[in-house]
Structures are given as C-alpha cells and as structure tokens.
Nucleic acid binder design. Structure first.
Lengths: 138, 138
DNA sequence: GGTACGTACTTACCAAAAGTTAGTCCAGGG
DNA sequence: CCCTGGACTAACTTTTGGTAAGTACGTACC
C-alpha cells in the first residue's frame, strides 16, 4: 500500500482502485468482512481444503453455529467462499475457498502466523501466561 | 502458517507458539485487536509516521472520537502503539507505531492493499458501484 | 465582556450486533 | 421411545459500537 498521491490520477487509477480509509468505499466493507472476528478464522480453516460445516465448527474454537453460519454466508456472498449443498438429510454441506478467497486467506494467514510466532514477545516473554498447548482442532 | 503437526513438539515448540484457533490462547485476543474494525485502519494510518489524535480522526473516515480513543488505548496496552502526551493545554498527544506494531501493521496493510487492488474483481467489475474517488484523507 | 475554534479525550444513553438457547428434519442405533 | 450427528434458524438476552454532549484551556474575533 503506497502513498496515495493527490496528483492527477494516472492510467492505472482508471481501474478504480479502492481506498479502505474512505468510509463509503466498498473496499471498507470487504475489509471488515475479511477481518471480522470469525471471518478471519473461517478463511484460515479453509486454507487446508474443503470442509463441512461441523468440521469448521470444531476447528474454530469458540464459534457458535449461528455466528459460523452467518459468517460463511457473508463470505459466500462476497465471493470468497463456495458452498456446495448435497441436498440430503441429514444435511451435507461443504465449504471451500474460491481462488479469490484463497488469495485473501493467505494474507490473513500471514498476519496470524506472525502473531503466533511472536506471541512470547508480544506477551512480554511471560512463559506462564502462554498455555496454548491445548490445540483447538486440526 | 503451516500445518501444526500433531507429533511430538520439536525444540521450536518450546517457544510456546500461539494458536489462534484455540479460544483461550492469548494469540486470539491479539488477533482480534489487530483485526478489529478500527484497529486495522489505525495501524495503517500510523505506518506513514507519528500522528496526532485529530489527524488520525480525519484520516480514518467514519471513526468516532470515542472508538478511536478506545482503539488506540487498546493497541497501546498491547504494545503496538506508543502514546506521547506533551501535557499541555490544549492537549497535545502523539501516537506512533512501536517496532512490533510496525511489523503487525505491514501485514495488515498487505491485506488492505490486496483488497484495494482487487476491488473491481471483487465487486464483479461493476464500474458504477466503485466510486472511491473521494479520498477520506491523506 | 461574549462566542467560536481546535485539541484529546470522557460520559450518558441508545442502536446494533454478538451470544445463548431451543428448535427443525431425518436416518440410524440402542 | 430417546439419543446422535448434521446444518442450519428463531427468539431472547447480553455485549459492544455509535451518537451526542460535556470537560478544560489558549487564541481569535466581535
């Protein structure tokens, strides 16, 4: 993200580049969806490949079915997630990242990775406060 | 973010790597703070350098003073932002990224950059729906 | 004298979103 | 009969975000 010069828009500006700092720009909504509490984790959970709803639920510690369903629906609407309903009972539904979703998820995952690797430093190197041995899923 | 093998933790695991999927892991809170609605934009706004409160307010379109203050306080507490109060009236306070905050902000900015560059594609290439010419600040 | 402005917050109250709990439908098992 | 798993949805409660007003003070202007 470079400085946005205030000069005359060049040819590349013709592509209507977004501006997340501008409240009314659609990129703001996209940013909010991708960085939403459960959106971040759902995207990352799908990086490993297609998953069913209940798998995602178990993978993402702390998410409710309601919030997961809501989040996936929104990501699907945005075009980042593809939902496949097999139309059977009990229900069988699978979720997968679209190519665009995969690109977004990689960026999100890079941040999460950085946090996880730097956690001791962030927490001020207090060994007792970082008990993440109990993995949520995976 | 690689697969977290379920095998015996190696020596590197001794460093208590975080796991954002685990609800109780402190990395979850950090992730939520860094990806919060206003946290994302505040971090990015500070990438250009030190700014005063009102500058940030103007730069980040749509944020209220309340939410901005709240967000900056939390980022400061986490160690990503440094606050300098000059103790004068009218108040003069400056905010800057810490080295750690700069690292985090770069990751966040990469995602935002990706969104902005891919906005036409994300919006399905509808030219009429992407009027971001009115820049929020900068 | 008064009002207005900018600064960086804080407070009181309301709106919106998240969270909790229960429910739906069905096949299979005890 | 009840329970389980699956993928949601609805009703209600709790939490967080948003709105509007307030604080204190120096400076500028009428």
């Amino acid at each position: 993200m470079e400085t946005r010069g205030e000069g005359t828009p060049g040819l590349s500006e013709k592509l209507r580049r977004g501006d997340v700092f501008a409240e009314q720009c659609p990129s703001r909504d996209i940013l909010n969806h991708l960085t939403s509490r459960w959106g971040v984790l759902a995207l990352m959970a799908l990086l490993d490949g297609t998953r069913r709803f209940s798998e995602l639920r178990r993978k993402v510690g702390g998410v409710s079915e309601k919030m997961l369903a809501q989040t996936l629906k929104r990501l699907e609407k945005d075009g980042f997630v593809q939902r496949t309903d097999y139309g059977v009972v009990p229900p069988r539904v699978e979720y997968a990242l679209t190519p665009m979703g995969r690109e977004a998820a990689r960026h999100v995952a890079a941040l999460a990775d950085w946090i996880e690797r730097n956690l001791p430093r962030i927490m001020g190197a207090r060994p007792g406060a970082e008990d993440c041995a109990g993995r949520a899923g995976g």
